[in-house]
Nucleic acid binder design. Structure first.
Lengths: 256, 256
DNA sequence: CCGACTTTGTGCATGCGTTCACAAGCGGTA
DNA sequence: TACCGCTTGTGAACGCATGCACAAAGTCGG
């Protein structure tokens, strides 16, 4: 990196302006894939692999080789033509772009089944995401340590988040509580939220929300099951004995 | 539906050929949003709302109104111009397209923290996804009921899945076991897999995989934290006392 | 030192998804 | 019945992401 820039910097800023522009320009979809490449690369590194070609890496990551190269080009050109990429070099540059050189303190709100699972996830895979605060409303849970962290009451969310410099909030509450919890997190200065509650959160523009919605995932799969069934029925159209083909007769189905 | 078709059918198939073509044509992204609309509509229905405009619904679902109308148009035209949509009608048509008129039997593999949480999720929100089988390798878990279902040994996966007609497999195992579990599910005839393990699964073309990857989600959020920090540093470029701006000095950081 | 081979990085075309803007259609009202 | 205002449904333009194909650039063997 330091070696391959050099076009006149007019500011006195010590950080690379080019990095900021680059980071801003990376497509969202590419960011998600970079995280996958990072995991694959880390695995390779652990196994002692030191070099890798775009072809190998792309196959391990389950993507097109050209796409992988384009994704990597967003963060700079760290490959060697005719050879490939140095695993360690790629790892460190992806980590830098993803902001993993800082560790991000995480708070989990809602210590039910899912909250327990998250709190015990063990510093989050690929570490750099220490869970430093847990919240719930249930008086029986307050003070109980889960995964080594004692649970605080949700009313303390602002003070605790500020004190522990929480930068990512994870919402694992029942749906009705989610928006209220979200609002409190936001007012505590949390700007990134990972939402497991099946609710569409309303947040100000400066807050980033990502949602993980199990019901939606299941329903997408269901759609594909149905599509497949339809296709199967379509291939043997009219041959299959009438009736049982995933859609109700006439396609009209009133739910019970 | 039944009332608004009628253009000459040349086959003797009782299901709508138009439905199949339509379903095939729905963009993946739209399917995911349809699931969200369905949840919002169900909520409205529960609150006694019977009619809704695209504007209202789009706001509740957090999307653009035009996009919502286009999404709904993929499944047919069930609105009334000048009025809006009937909530119940939309609900039933979205359910039909998503294949929710059949219930889809779910198997969860890997009964750790996350597996427990999933098994107890209560038939999965928005129901229609009964968990009917649980698997693990730990002998201490075999036979123990979790969420009402006794845990089977993973070696029984084929028989049990076939017997209980599992159509969706959920992988919640440690990473190293995921591919092997996936292969077993596939050979047991499961064609849809929801993967929580941070691993890129290799599957045949006829199997649909969706992955939920917490580490990737966190890293995407981390990227946005870093981008924000950079922007903040950029706005006050050079004014901010040198150093602490999310990127290491010179943008070059070697991980420990 | 040179030429052949390998692999990266990227310009370009293609396709998909989103957004805009408006005509078509429907209910209400006089 | 005829008009008016409202909302849907969609054609068309735009923008982003993907995939291709090739030039640039490096290594290795002779």
């Amino acid at each position: 990196m330091a070696s391959q820039r050099g076009e006149g910097e007019t500011t006195t800023t010590p950080v690379e302006p080019a990095d900021r522009e680059r980071a801003r320009a990376i497509p969202e979809a590419a960011v998600a894939r970079l995280a996958v490449y990072l995991r694959v690369l880390s695995g390779m590194s652990d196994q002692g692999v030191t070099a890798v070609s775009s072809e190998e890496l792309s196959q391990a990551a389950g993507v097109n080789a050209a796409k992988l190269r384009k994704d990597l080009s967003y963060i700079g050109s760290y490959g060697t033509r005719g050879v490939g990429y140095d695993v360690e070099v790629l790892v460190s540059h992806i980590e830098r772009i993803l902001g993993l050189t800082r560790s991000h303190s995480v708070a989990v709100v809602g210590i039910g089944n899912l909250g327990h699972a998250l709190a015990n996830y063990g510093g989050f895979p690929g570490r750099g995401f220490p869970v430093t605060a847990l919240f719930d409303v249930d008086p029986d849970l307050i003070g109980i340590p889960v995964g080594g962290i004692p649970v605080n009451h949700i009313d303390e969310i602002t003070e605790v988040c500020l004190e522990r410099e929480v930068s990512i909030g994870v919402i694992a509450t029942p749906p009705p509580a989610a928006q209220s919890v979200c609002d409190r997190l936001v007012s505590a200065g949390v700007q990134c939220i990972l939402n497991f509650a099946p609710v569409v959160l309303q947040v100000p523009d400066n807050v980033e929300v990502r949602k993980v919605d199990l019901a939606v995932e299941m329903q997408i799969l269901s759609f594909h099951v149905a599509r497949r069934a339809d296709e199967a029925a379509g291939v043997s159209a009219g041959i299959d004995s009438a009736g049982n083909n995933g859609l109700g007769v006439d396609g009209m189905v009133i739910r019970p």
